[in-house]
Amino acid sequence: MIRRLLYYLAIFLPFSVLAQDDLLTLVKEEPKNDPPRSVYATFKTTKIVNSQTIETVKKRNLDFRVTHRFGNLYNSTSANALNEAAHNAFGLDNATDIRLSFDYGITDKLTIGIGRSKYREMNDASVKWRFLTQRENNTIPVSVCIYGNMGYTSMSTNNLYAGTVRPKTNEAHRIQYASQLLIARKFNSWFSLQIMPTYIHRNFIKQQLNTNNGKEDMNDLFSLGIGGRIKLSKRFAVVADYFYNFSQFQHNNPSGYYNPLGVGIEIETGGHVFHINYTNGAAILESSLLTSTQDSWTKGQIKLGFNISRWFTL
């Protein structure tokens, strides 16, 4: 009898395995030859604080941006610093730089843009191309963009050559360039990091000497930037970026040159992204920012700023 029971059991057991509730596991182990997925949303928008990100404008979308930098919060080098700060509402009465820009996505990976900045009256055109996109399976561990920006200043000839022995006027003197390689990795859903080797060239510079080390200002400037984002909730993140300038003219300069550091928060509401930040950099355009940051965090010379981005689907 018992042998028979065992006999039945032996027959029934394999079928009881079939009676599992999760039928989906039956087909789970099928090989999948889908191409590895691209990592999306490394950053929420095309800028961190001062720097570009590897994010491009999506195909046939137009990104309209308003970027604003108020005046210095405080200036500890001034004799009557507090009084002065209070009189200009801690910088809110001044606008060091304002930039309006339009960026358009030709493809999901190629963006072109134009912009206008108050600082040195710059009109600029830019191209950003993401030629590598990070994959979820890490076959490509980082996303890489090349970004180029050409600025043309429309300031008056007198202003352009002010303080110099005026050379033969040349349109090319008005142009400055920034080229960057943007390399970013989204480590997980809340942390992204980016490094940015940067090369800046200004066609025309005033002759200036760092009297501490006898180095002159140069047309070319190399800089290395680092930036990142920490996402705290679905729509809220903390962002920061920093550039280290490889310039002997800038280092230990008695007239004071500093590396720009920007810290901010990012709020996303769907089609809009708002940034509220503090930075010591006066200018917004990379080629102006890295060559002319003469304010320091330690002296309270930081500016409240905001970036607003609004996407339109065309």
Binding site: Y40, A41, D108, G270
Partner: peptide
Amino acid sequence: QKSLMEEHFNENYVESSK
């Protein structure tokens, strides 16, 4: 149809990574 929608769908609404 719009890739921005797709990103928002995954990031903000259904939270695909979670």
